[in-house]
């Protein structure tokens, strides 16, 4: 049971994914990385069926994405867009409760199991004390946790997140990534679009590196993050070193002397 893509193409006017075949293991924490516009969000949305693929086959945990019902898919896979709409004047508990929709009828009447799942999800992200707080009264990091709790309440084995760390302070970035790590430890499969290569290498056990609508490489961070990859994919000249704590690859740019001195001399004036 995993997520499998076979010759999948997708996209909109002006941008298309090249046929992609990919397998994402169940139970992994997988990060999709690549430069801006390389198609990582498009790929994630296509797997989530928020975007219809133009061709190819996708199976998610044994479900054929083309033919399965929307609720069945939603019970298997949860997706968080990059910029979720934050409805005004609803509370954390109400938001997390919406995560139960795929388990409910049209009218969304909460059963005992629904209520328990909501409480458990809020507890897991540490927001139980904020249940009655309105979303508008939360910090960016807390709001992100509330949305992740909503995905948890959905009780789908696969959670897809599109840049959950974007626009967060580094503190909340780490908090969010630690939370994903925690969910991963609990057995959820997380597939995350990330921007920061070192963060992705530090937290993920599987990296999918994309370039120009294609998968450039897939594998363990140690195997796929290299100076050659940085040059080929991002067009940067940087050196790779082992993170002192985890041994995972981290990077630092090789700065040309002349360019480095400019801002320094400006600062001195």
């Amino acid at each position: 049971m995993s997520i499998q893509l076979h010759n999948v193409t997708a996209g909109y006017d002006g941008f298309k994914l090249s046929p992609i075949s990919l397998e994402l293991e169940r139970g992994s924490l997988c990060a999709l990385i690549g430069p801006n516009g390389c198609g990582k969000s498009t790929l994630l949305k296509t797997i989530a069926r928020v975007l219809q693929p133009l061709s190819g086959e996708i199976t998610v945990g044994g479900l054929n994405s083309k033919t399965c019902g929307s609720k069945a898919l939603a019970r298997t896979l949860s997706f968080q867009p990059q910029h979720p709409v934050v409805p005004p004047a609803i509370t954390v508990e109400q938001l997390v409760g919406y995560g139960r929709a795929p388990h409910q009828s049209l009218f969304g009447i909460a059963s005992k199991a629904d209520k328990e799942a909501v409480q458990a999800a809020m507890a897991q992200v540490g927001l139980s004390a904020f249940a009655d707080r309105r979303l508008s009264a939360l910090s960016g990091g807390q709001r992100q946790r509330a949305f992740i709790a909503m995905s948890l309440a959905q009780e789908a084995p696969y959670i897809l997140l599109d840049e959950p760390t974007a626009f967060l302070d580094v503190k909340y970035q780490f908090e969010t990534l630690d939370l994903l790590q925690h969910l991963h430890d609990l057995g959820r499969t997380c597939i995350v679009v990330l921007h920061d290569i070192a963060q992705a290498a530090r937290y993920a056990d599987d990296l999918v590196i994309m370039r120009e609508g294609q998968v450039y490489a897939q594998g363990a961070p140690k195997d796929v993050v290299s100076e050659e990859m940085l040059h080929n994919v991002y067009g940067v000249n940087a050196q790779i070193y082992a993170d002192p704590e985890s041994g995972t690859p981290a990077l630092s740019p090789r700065v040309k002397r002349a360019e480095a001195q400019k801002p320094l001399s400006l600062a001195a004036e």
Partner: peptide, 13 residues
């Protein structure tokens, strides 16, 4: 659910 945005509503089934 629609109030959560089209993408989110879709992913909620």
């Amino acid at each position: 659910l629609i109030g959560l945005g089209d993408d989110m509503a879709t992913s909620l089934g």
